[in-house]
Design a protein around this nucleic acid. Structure first.
Lengths: 250, 250
DNA sequence: GATAACTCTATACACTGTATGCCGATGAGA
DNA sequence: TCTCATCGGCATACAGTGTATAGAGTTATC
């Protein structure tokens, strides 16, 4: 499957393997000991446990009883492994748009995406800008666009809404993950230590940045529920704005 | 300066060195050949040219006529180097709020931040969630909060607006950078090749994801100006929504 | 002047992704 | 059925990463 003349076509075939795309090429060598989905399960498990930083080819291979090089026939390069993992972990759950308003439908979408990122925090670390890769990512996007279309949202504004929603959900998920890691490990995270040291060293920090300080004071103690509410709030603001803002100028 | 009993306090002192914080500790060893700002200039130059991937301690040191280890007295670990670089490159420019509306002031802020990211694309690759680190980042945040305050924006909604604005500007900058890299290097970027291969392999992609396809068709040919307009548009939607959405529920 | 503190170099180590060569298993063509 | 190109998986190797360690040489303090 892997050594089609074009390695990136082989990669795409792997990405879409569950959507009616055949693996290409007659198979002549010895049989594989594993299935691609098992490999990806292992890789996702490693990333869930140790983050992207702990995701080495040797770690994934070791969990499968393989050597690092033994991974290549399955997933190609590490960059391609990441793309496969990303899609493997991003299955779109099924739910009914709650209604009655656009806000509710969008919020439902956003909250489900946020939950996905919460289960797999490393997803938020991956670059998002570079075009939707696999079928699952396409599913998410198509679903969102479906909501916007059914609710008769101004078409020219849709790209902006898509960008804003993804960006906010991902940013919130990153913050949430950072707090989660800090809470999980007994020792305080480096960035928390730094914040404390800053207050100690600078001293009049609150006077220099009164507004930032005030914002920090309002920070919720129950950060575990806060991000979800925050996402919801942004969606509300966005929707209200959609009714009046209309098409972009440029 | 560096080996104060607490290395992270030393780091914070370096971060705020231009804001009246003394470097601490009497100096006894040989004089430094370089100034910290020169080191950071070099590091930023490397990152501008080769991205974060090309930013190795040896690369930065080499540009300065040092060995890799010679960097440590100046910047500490690489994580700390990144924090110092981030702040070093993030000086807040000066401008007058254009008015007359909130939209214009916010758009002016957002566009300036976007320009910063365009000059230093690696800034958008850095994690943002983990608390503002240095003085320059604080300046940006304080300026934004100043606008929201002067325009009498509902205080409870400010955190959401801050998140949304940063998230959107950063996401847009990442996309812009990806296109920029693709255009710069003669060969097509990997993700563009993959998108082409996907259309070739899947074939009925446009039928499976009609709405995503339509969105792609609307993609502007002049992607160089598009991101700025996109940022502006999101700001508009956000502002209109701000007037009516009010405080968050939770 | 002695000594502690400091900068900078050289070396070394564990770890990364992956190129290369190998052996053995496999299936297609003869 | 024999042959051979093809493939899976392993061992090895290599360049590159951040950084721990040790030492040489320089500086300010006692």
């Amino acid at each position: 499957m892997s050594q089609a003349p074009d390695p990136i076509e082989a990669h795409v075939r792997r990405l879409w393997r569950h959507r009616g795309v055949e693996p290409a090429a007659p198979r002549r060598g010895p049989r594989r000991r594993l299935a691609l989905d098992d490999v990806l399960d292992a890789a996702v498990a490693v990333a869930d446990a140790d983050g992207l930083a702990g995701l080495s080819t040797r770690a994934v291979a070791g969990r499968l009883g393989l050597t690092a090089m033994g991974l290549y026939p399955y997933v190609g390069t590490k960059e391609q492994l990441l793309a496969l993992m990303e899609d493997h972990a991003s299955a779109l759950p099924s739910w009914d748009d709650p209604g009655p308003g656009l806000v509710d439908d969008l919020a439902a979408w956003a909250e489900r995406l946020f939950d996905l990122y919460r289960h797999h925090p490393w997803l938020a670390e991956l670059a998002w800008s570079e075009a939707p890769g696999g079928p699952h990512q396409q599913d998410w996007l198509e679903r969102l666009l479906g909501i916007l279309e059914r609710r008769r949202t101004p078409p020219a504004a849709r790209a902006a809404v898509v960008t804003a929603l993804y960006a906010v959900v991902r940013a919130t998920a990153q913050t949430d993950a950072a707090y989660g890691r800090a809470a999980a490990s007994g020792v305080a995270a480096a960035w928390l230590e730094r914040a404390r040291a800053t207050r100690r060293v600078v001293g009049d920090l609150a006077d220099r940045y009164p507004r930032s300080h005030a914002l920090g004071q309002h920070a919720p103690h129950d950060w575990r529920d806060a991000p979800r509410a925050s996402v919801r709030h942004v969606v509300e603001v966005l929707c209200h704005g959609l009714g009046t803002a209309g098409a972009p100028r440029a």
